[in-house]
Simulated scan of single mutants.
Amino acid sequence: MYTRGVRILAASAAMVLVATACGTAEEGEEGLAEDLAGGAETTEGDDADSDAGSGAGGDYRIGFIPQIEGIPYYDGFEQGAAAAAEEFGVSFEQTGPATVSSPDQLRIFESLVSQGFDAIAISPLDPTAINSSINSTVESGIPVLTSDADAPDSDRQVFVAQALDQDLGYALMDDLARQVGESGQIGIVSGIPDTASLDAWTDAMIERMENEYPDMELVGGVRNTEDSEDALREAQDLMTAFPEIVGIVGVPSTAVPGVAQAVQNADRAGEIAVIGYGSPNTAGPFIEAGVMETTVLWNVEELGYLTVWAAIELIEGRELQAENDVPGLDRPIEFDEETGVLLLGPPMIFDESNYADFDF
């Protein structure tokens, strides 16, 4: 089903593969802005696109609140967002909790509101905890968008989605099934309970397994964790409780290194497949060590870039179109008006042939 290199879920074949490579650490934010925006032209004659990302006035302040600060994944998001801010002449600030904490996210959100940011984006850990604040902020006239994870029952105006939840779950399970020969016991180590995006991906994985791979079995239930140390312990427990286990999924990027380290410590690399939604930088050492073959994700720098562009569109009152020409991205970006989802594209699968081409 998959070839070497960037492999895409077959069900998403109609979508265009994310082709713009991220800048390296040596290139820095300026290089990334050139890579993402160089040579791109806005479509003339379309009100939604003609001035897209102009950053009129040059003094917009756009904030983003990640689920946790200081991990490679959100560092990559910040690099892409900062490149967009430079390109479009706005200010961007990313600030998130030091640990996965919904109360801390809410506190930061309310702080950005009080500071007068022109638009606020957030990747909510617990939508129910943030919905009320999102609603009151939108009502006050400050645009709010979600990115990376959604709060679908809130009044957020746009969800900048990295990929469709079902596509992400299916892509991961298809590749795991390939690695384990479509049979055997597998475990799933997720993040904190009731995180909407993680739950949706996990549900899609299980649905795909039950419908397409009847000889595969989920054992031990879905294990919830808060950080890599928790994930390591849960992976160790799975290997002890189910010695015949053939694969373990680390769902969030915080779980991936813990699961991979547990398998490596047990000297079962090559015997137990490890896969998850880890960034290339996070998964890279384990790919090199033979503990992981692949990691499923998306171009997170482009996700950050697209989020800043979308925030500017909301600030300037432009309606998103079914297809949007975004300066700096090399393909039209689809928008579903009914759901409010602005879609970056299909999942990407990184392996030893391509993970080093990305710096996040």
Rank of each mutant, 00 (worst) to 15 (best):
E34C: 06
F117L: 03
P347H: 04
R318G: 15
A82E: 01
P103G: 13
E182H: 11
V263F: 13
I349V: 12
M216G: 00
L164N: 04
S147W: 00
L172Y: 10
D330E: 09
L32E: 00
V158F: 04
G284A: 06
Q236N: 11
T3Y: 09
L320C: 14
I62A: 03
P127A: 08
E93I: 07
G70Q: 07
G5T: 03
A311E: 13
N135F: 08
E337D: 11
R178A: 15
G53R: 04
D175V: 15
G31Y: 14
G141F: 01
N354F: 12
A260Y: 03
P127F: 11
D227I: 08
T339K: 15
G258Q: 05
A129G: 14
P103V: 14
P280F: 07
L232R: 01
R178I: 14
G116P: 11
Q162Y: 12
E78F: 03
L164S: 01
G181H: 05
N131K: 05
S123G: 12
G247L: 00
S101I: 08
I272Y: 08
P193N: 12
D175S: 08
P252K: 01
D351C: 03
P66F: 01
A311H: 08
W201V: 06
G63I: 04
G328S: 07
Y277V: 02
G5M: 01
D194L: 15
D49C: 09
P72A: 07
Q115W: 09
G184S: 12
E288V: 10
T99Y: 02
A83E: 00
N224S: 12
Q179S: 13
Y170W: 15
G278K: 05
L342S: 14
N324D: 06
S147E: 10
E293N: 15
F358G: 01
I287H: 06
M15C: 05
L329N: 00
V189I: 13
Y74E: 07
C22G: 04
V291P: 14
G39L: 05
L238K: 04
I71V: 12
A177R: 03
L218I: 07
T295E: 03
P257T: 07
S228G: 15
D46Q: 09
G55Q: 07
A283T: 14
A200S: 11
P332F: 12
E212G: 03
A171S: 13
T294L: 04
W298R: 00
L314M: 11
A241L: 02
A48T: 11
N281Y: 01
E93V: 09
Q166N: 06
D330W: 02
R223K: 14
V144N: 06
S147R: 02
N211K: 00
V274W: 08
S253W: 06
T282V: 15
V6I: 12
Q185D: 11
Y305C: 00
